[in-house]
Amino acid sequence: MCLTRQASPLRRDITVSPRTPVSTETGPAVEAAKAAKAREERATGLRGSIHRRPVTWFFVLAYVLSWAAWTPYVLSQNGLGVWDFAFPGTGAAPQLLGILPGGYLGPIVSALLLTGLTEGRAGLRAWRGRMTKFRVNWRWYAVVLLSVPAALTITSAVVSDSGPAMPTAMVLAAFLPGLIGQMVTTGLAEEPGWREFAMPRLQERYGPLAATAIVGPLWGVWHLPLFLTEWGGYPDVTWVDVLKFVITAIAFSFVMTWVFNRSSGSMPLVMLLHCGVNNFFSIAAMDMFPGMTRQDASSAFLLGSLVGALIVLVATRGRLGAGSASGDGALPGRAA
Rank of each mutant, 00 (worst) to 15 (best):
A249D: 00
L145I: 05
S324Q: 10
R262C: 00
T4S: 13
W83A: 14
D287P: 09
I50Y: 10
W83G: 05
G79E: 14
A251F: 09
A68L: 15
Y63L: 14
A211N: 12
F260K: 00
P28W: 02
R319L: 08
D241A: 02
S324F: 06
L61D: 03
W219E: 13
L3I: 13
G123N: 09
P28D: 15
S147Q: 11
R53C: 11
F254L: 07
A126V: 05
D236I: 03
C2K: 07
S282P: 01
P21R: 10
Q77H: 00
A174Q: 11
S66W: 06
V307Y: 01
G304Q: 07
I311G: 11
A297H: 03
L96S: 06
I154P: 07
I99M: 04
I311V: 14
T4C: 07
Y234P: 09
I14S: 02
G91P: 05
L114R: 01
V312Q: 00
M256L: 12
N137D: 13
W222P: 02
F134Q: 03
A29G: 08
Y104F: 15
V74R: 00
R39I: 10
A150P: 01
L224S: 09
K37V: 09
W239R: 02
D328L: 06
S324R: 05
P235T: 13
N78A: 12
R39W: 14
S253D: 04
E41S: 14
R5L: 12
F280G: 06
L272V: 06
P208H: 03
L302C: 05
